[in-house]
């Protein structure tokens, strides 16, 4: 019996345990809110977390298709990237899964249903997940700064243009494109 099969016996509990550990990274009042309300609009962070974590667990125990995992990791990291977390805390939630898997696998190893090598192999998958999270996190932070830069650029440029304070080089018009006229 493989580790994946062993863990798959109780997928929802696995996702729940991971969710609970992540809730612990928030202040107590907030973690209570995140698990209380099940409405996806009243509690978007809690909802997104629980949905994405279940999806990630499914993939970790199944095909581990990167195309499917990435959007799920994105949903979680996109939120944590703009919350009050250090970069390590923002992506560190991935490693919490190791803690859970080790705890659960212990019993399987003892009963010889799971080999330690399988645990190591599974942890490598978690490492891949962490690297994915790191990529997403970096992308989110870059996006944040890009938004700032764009905001400043748009503000000044459009203003100058509209106040006729700058003369922009126009796009080549149709005549020029057709070679009917030339710039001499």
């Amino acid at each position: 019996m493989g580790l994946e099969q062993f863990l798959a016996g109780d997928k929802p509990a696995l996702a729940r345990a991971w969710f609970d550990l992540i809730l612990g990274t928030y202040p107590p009042e907030t973690s209570a809110l995140l698990q209380k309300d099940k409405n996806q609009f009243a509690n978007p962070v809690g909802y997104t977390l629980s949905q994405s974590l279940s999806g990630i667990i499914d993939e970790m125990l199944g095909g581990f298709d990167h195309e499917k995992v990435l959007p799920l990791v994105d949903q979680v990291v996109r939120v944590r990237a703009i919350q009050d977390f250090s970069p390590a805390q923002a992506v560190g939630f991935v490693f919490l899964l190791k803690k859970i898997v080790r705890n659960r696998a212990e019993e399987g190893i003892r009963e010889k249903r799971v080999s330690p090598n399988e645990v190591l192999a599974f942890e490598s998958k978690i490492d891949q997940l962490a690297l994915m999270a790191f990529n997403v996190y970096t992308g989110c932070r870059e996006k944040l700064y890009e938004l700032r830069v764009n905001e400043v650029k748009n503000r000044t440029f459009r203003l100058l243009q509209r106040a006729s304070l700058i003369a922009e080089i126009p796009e080549q018009d149709t005549q020029l494109k057709n070679g009917k006229d030339s710039i001499t």
Binding site: P27, E29, L33, L34, A42, N43, I82, Q83, D84
Partner: peptide, 17 residues
């Protein structure tokens, strides 16, 4: 009111309640 503020929902900082 506590969980109705968009800043609290988004930030998770209790003082935004």
């Amino acid at each position: 009111c506590s969980d109705k503020c968009h800043f609290y929902i988004g930030s998770g900082d209790p003082k935004n309640m």
